[in-house]
Amino acid sequence: MGVDAMSRRLIALLVVLALVALGTLGCESATSGATRLGQQLGLINEQQKGSIDRTTQAFRKSFHDLTEQEEYSLGRAVAAQIIARYGLYHEPSLTAYVNRVGKAVVVVSSRPEIYGGYHFAVLDSDEPNAFSAPGGFIFVTRGLLRIVPNEDALAGVLAHEVGHVAEKHGLAAINKDRLMDAFGILGREAGRTMQKENLVKLTDLYEGAVGDILKTVVEKGYGRSQEREADEDAVKFASAIGYQPKALLDFLTRLESTAKPGAPRLLSTHAPAAERKAWLEPIVSSLPAGTDPAPREQRFRLAMAKL
């Protein structure tokens, strides 16, 4: 007994209704599954499947809906601007060392895989600070490395920046209207060719988005709750690979004690040291204490001698 024409039409109608329902809910993976299912059942053809997938792409709502590739692209541009502003400190063995410490905390982080991988570099600036761009571009200044006392503290600093990337705090800084305009153009143009006029508009929006992120990263700093999240990630990631989580706390105490009255706050784009210690102390005491740091002393000294 075969499926007659009437039943096939009814099933086709139900498929369409399901697609519309799912599409409206913004459930992209479900609709792509549905279109694939529909295709397998022979109810919709390749072309129709393509159109439906492109339409649901248009229902992107927030920075969470940016793809890994898009994040990477934005992050690269932010990184280019950071490098233009501060300059890179070109010391290969120091940079290689920072990348190794960075990788050690990345692999146990909540987001070890990222489109282009995480990359670390040293900026040629005396101002102690650390910056992260979306897509995994992380920077520390020479000024910061000069005051970091050991590898475990460096791991905490880098893990804090990895935390910002993992939680997409940089992307959250993009102006919402700007992002929605970009999603609109991308949704209409998805997959094929783009009119020059839209390329110009999209480039303006891209530049604006990069500017939004840059302003937060190097000037305003992230909000308190984001800073707290990144600090929690910092000690969790660092201790997960065996670094002593208290090293970051000790470093913050050192920052407090070396602060000169009236001088601009060290690590100015981060929360004040006292506040950070307050929210870190209970977490650090709940985490594994870390392995004996002695085996890490010599390589830290050797690397920092290149500063």
């Binding site: 590739q69 692209s73 541009a77 991308l186 783009m194 390329l199 999209l202």
Partner: peptide, 22 residues
């Protein structure tokens, strides 16, 4: 592509074309 007024996105959204233009 600027001479033909069209740019192929190669399914990559923002990325290649916009980044190059930027």
């Amino acid at each position: 592509a600027t001479s033909t007024d069209e740019v192929s996105l190669a399914g990559k959204g923002f990325n290649e074309s916009v980044e190059k233009n930027y």
